Amino acid sequence: MQNPSRRQLLQAGASAMFGLAFSPVLARSSDSVLPKGPINLVVPFAAGGATDVVSRLVAQKLGDRIQRTVVVENLSGGGGAIGAAKVARATPDGHTLLMGTIATHVINPLSMGQQLPYRAQTDFTPVSLVVTVPNVLLVNKSVKATNVRELIALVKAQPNQFSYGSSGVGTPPHLSGELFKSTMGLQMTHVPYKGGGPAMTDLIAGHIPILFDVLSGAASHIRAGSVRALAVTTSERVASFPDLPTMVESGVPGYETWTWNAVFGPAGMPRPMVDALSGALHEVVAQPDVQAQLKDLSATPVGSTPDALTQLVDSETQKWQAVIKSIGGLKKD
């Protein structure tokens, strides 16, 4: 079966948004089904990374929308597994939510198996897909490569002399790097971090020469000129950086990866509460100022029904299972 492209996923999300906007369930939803008191939104990566940046914007706007305090809690480690496990064990009363990613709900289950401290398919209640985001290939400004082809030649000329960083083992940026290595026959060492923020700090400082990052987290650094962006990992260029080529355009055949952020709760949340939260998130990402800010971060606003998010996780599992198999599995560096 052919894996869905990013465009197909966005079209599916747009259809879900249309259906949600006119849902009779939403029309009947009221304040009475929402959690009473503050909501804790667990971000399973370090502060300053892409997921954290998107989460803080969404948390503030969601809090305004439902008149509740929504607090972001960064709980990094294990490629997102530690934070996700906390939410999986929480009481399903809506007071604890997770900003999940491909890492927490697709890649970790595929790579860690029984070692994972939660079951992605059964320990969570899907609420809404929030955004999709490309990954990006970055280098320190001292690296003598101004495009992907020059970087490939540089790495091939010095096998095992270059390392690349990511936000953690098993995260989409990590797999983006492994797919790059596998496709082009490169020998590089992976350096995992506890989030995109610390990895970016070390890239700027020159402690690592190469970084695969989520574009929403890297955007401000690219614009500031503190790092050099070589290519986006999606099959099409992005509107926020129209001059930045894709990996395919840069000579890496068949290359395409991306990530997404979606809200999940613990398993067993009441469906009326889930629908109310999903509807509120849809309304948040539909706000013009939120859309503008997310697009400035190179994140594409989506918003979806819980069922559409379930379908997305299923399709992404199929896609990444094939990617992990193609690179011979994941090695714990």
Rank of each mutant, 00 (worst) to 15 (best):
I327E: 02
L9D: 00
T234L: 05
L10T: 08
K181C: 13
T310C: 09
V106W: 00
L116S: 00
L62N: 03
I39N: 02
A103W: 02
V302R: 04
F180K: 04
R65G: 03
G168V: 07
N74A: 01
D52W: 11
T122V: 12
S240I: 12
V263A: 01
G217P: 12
G225D: 06
V25D: 10
P117Y: 03
S29F: 08
P192F: 10
L9W: 14
A59G: 08
A27K: 15
I324E: 01
G251Q: 05
T132F: 04
F124G: 01
A219R: 07
R65A: 13
L26Q: 04
T257M: 13
M273W: 10
W320I: 13
V169G: 01
S76T: 03
T104G: 05
P306G: 09
A81V: 05
N147H: 14
V136D: 00
K141Q: 15
A205R: 14
L41D: 00
E236T: 14
A286R: 05
L281S: 06
L203V: 07
V155C: 09
G94S: 03
Q114P: 02
G177R: 01
K325Q: 15
F180M: 11
S128T: 13
G49E: 01
G13Y: 13
L312N: 06
A90W: 11
L215A: 03
D307A: 15
K156A: 04
F180P: 03
E256A: 13
V33S: 11
G195I: 08
S250D: 08
A14H: 14
A81C: 09
G177N: 04
D243Y: 08
Q318C: 02
N140Y: 10
K331Q: 13
V263H: 07
H105D: 00
S182T: 14
V25R: 02
L211T: 01
K141D: 12
M247W: 10
F264N: 02
A280C: 12
V42F: 07
G165T: 05
N40V: 14
L138F: 11
G100M: 05
L215T: 05
K332I: 14
S163I: 06
W260Y: 15
P306W: 07
V191P: 10
A267G: 11
V155F: 10
L138Y: 08
A205W: 06
P117F: 01
L211A: 03
Q158W: 04
A120N: 00
V191N: 07
H95G: 04
R271H: 13
P266T: 11
E178R: 14
N3P: 06
D314S: 14
V227R: 00
D52I: 08
A27I: 12
D93P: 14
A205H: 10
V25T: 12
F124C: 05
K332C: 05
R237C: 02
P44K: 01
S163Y: 05
V42R: 01
M17E: 08
M1A: 09
Q8S: 14
V70Y: 04
S278F: 09
V248P: 04
G83P: 09
L26D: 00
Q2M: 13
S5N: 06
A199G: 07
K295G: 01
T189Y: 09
G206C: 12
A85I: 06
I152L: 13
P209N: 04
T101R: 02
Q114D: 12
Y164H: 06
Q293Y: 10
K331D: 12
Q158H: 15
W258D: 06
V227K: 00
P92R: 04
E150A: 15
V285M: 04
N140G: 15
D93C: 08
V130Y: 02
H174Q: 06
E283D: 15
D314R: 15
